[in-house]
Amino acid sequence: MLLYLLRRILYTLPIAIGVSMVCFALIHLAPGDPLSAVIPEGASPEVIAQIKTAYGFDQPLPIQYLNWIWRAVQGDFGMSIMTRRPVLSEVGPAVVNTMILAVAAVTLGFGLGVGLGIAAGYTAGSPIDRVVTAISVSGVSVPHYWLGMVLIVIFAVNLGVLPAMGMGAQGSATFALDWVSLRHLILPAIAMSVIPAGIIARSVRGTVIEVLKQDYVQTLHAKGLPGRRVFVHVVKNAAPTVLAIMGLQLAQLLGGSILVETVFSWPGTGFLLNTAIFTRDLPILQGTILVLAMFFVAINLMVDLLQSVLDPRIKRA
């Protein structure tokens, strides 16, 4: 197991390098100057050259990449072009803020998805199943930022019961587990949860139907096991598949949603990326994308491990 873990961690290395190269190359392919947002009006070519040197953009691209990756390995992701603050000090709080939102959205989305999925799976073909399928299809299809706007209009603007934006009365600095802060969490969490809820409901439904058709379930019934106990077996057998999907969804939620976070002015990674894209803050973009990619890899690893714990048939030799 330990060996497997080590090997998997080693696997992440080429992935990290690949991701870093792709994101570095893509960003530099975009038209225009990476320093465009900070080059002032009327700057002379000398001033522009000085700025380029100060930011290290006077070097050839491969050298810039190597410099960046070498510093990143040492934990230094560089400085934001716009603010001159260390990238890590920008990405760190954003990741935490997104995590708060993601955990809320995950709890909501997974709870709803699993509940609806099981209900539909058990009643396949019935009106309940159809209603659930309709709900989950709309969950997957509704653009979540649009839903966010609709929620704001209904609950913040018209009813005035929930705040329209922000992460607390005084922002993320004072976020706590109290009603004042949690009120700010409700609408963005709902907006973020509909897609995972829809996806999970559909896959849980499919898996449950499949498991229910298995011989051993028939056998359990035939042996007279109460429905409650059979249910436990069904859930246990459906879990590994569902878990894999959940893992991917969680990773995606941790990446934040550029649109939902922007609509709600939620100061997470999505909001940060949005800002960085518009101001061409390359160090922030590179740092954030790399950190998020690593999250993805780490969560996949955790899901793999969890799956083998839940289902010993999945061997990790």
Partner: peptide, 15 residues
């Protein structure tokens, strides 16, 4: 608050 609709909603919501 870069999003124009968010700004308007926040004003209407009294934030």
């Amino acid at each position: 608050m870069p999003d124009a609709n968010t700004r308007v909603a926040a004003l209407l919501a009294g934030q």
